[in-house]
Amino acid sequence: MMDPCGAVAVLDSAICRGLTKQELYAECNRQHTDCAVVFHLLPHADQRSENGGESYARAVMTMRLGFAKPQQQVVFVDPLTGRTYRVDYCWRLADGTIIVAELDGMEKYTNPGMTNGRSMQIVVNEEKQREDGLRRAGVSVIVRFTFGDVLHTERLDRKLAEAGVPKAVAEVHV
C-alpha cells in the first residue's frame, strides 16, 4: 500500500536494526497475504543508508530513474591531509572515473546542533575543503542534490545524467 521508494526506506531501516533479509522473507511467508511486493522490493534494500532520506533517494535513483545502484557510505582518504571523508553515494566507472553524490540539506548550515556554533561561512568553507580533499583522493565528479530534487525527479535525473552516472542494464521503473 506504500509508495515503493518509501517502502524501500522502511526495509532499509528494518535491516539496519538487525533484521535479516531471510527473517523478513520468513515473516512474509508466515503471513496469509500476498507479499509479492515485499519480495520484489527486498533486493533493493541496503542497510548502509544512514537515514530515510538517503534510502528514499537511492530508491528513486535506481528504481524510478533507472540509474545503476551506487555504493553507499564509501570512505575516501585525502592523500595530502590524511583526513577521511565518507560520501553518501559512489559510482566507480570502468574508465576509472569516480562519481560521488551527496544528499544535502540546509540543516547542516543552519542547525546549531549540526554546526557546533560555527558560522555559516566556516561551514561552507569546510565543505569546500572537503570537496578539495575528495578530488585529491581521486573523485572525478561531485554531484550535490537536495530532497527537493528527489521529489522533482526530473531535476535529479538531469544532475545525475550530466555527471555521467550510468543507467542500469535492466531498468526498474515504479
Rank of each mutant, 00 (worst) to 15 (best):
M114Q: 14
Q73V: 08
E171L: 15
L160K: 13
L160N: 08
Y85K: 03
M120C: 12
Q121E: 15
G18H: 14
D95Q: 06
G6F: 08
L93E: 05
A14S: 14
T84R: 14
L151W: 12
A168P: 02
T153W: 07
E154D: 12
L156V: 08
G96R: 01
F145V: 05
Y25E: 15
D78G: 02
A170Y: 13
A161E: 10
R17V: 05
F39P: 03
D34I: 07
A101M: 06
M120F: 10
A168Y: 04
K128T: 10
G53I: 02
C90L: 07
G66Y: 05
N111K: 10
V10S: 11
G66F: 04
T81Y: 12
R58W: 00
K128V: 12
V124D: 01
G6Q: 13
Q72S: 11
V150G: 11
D132G: 04
V169S: 05
Q73P: 06
R135L: 07
Q121F: 14
V169F: 03
E154A: 02
P112I: 00
R58P: 03
Y109E: 00
K21G: 12
G138P: 03
V141A: 01
L156M: 08
V10D: 13
M120R: 13
P79E: 01
Y109P: 00
Q47M: 11
V10N: 05
V100A: 03
D149F: 01
V74R: 06
A101N: 06
S49G: 15
G138W: 08
G66N: 09
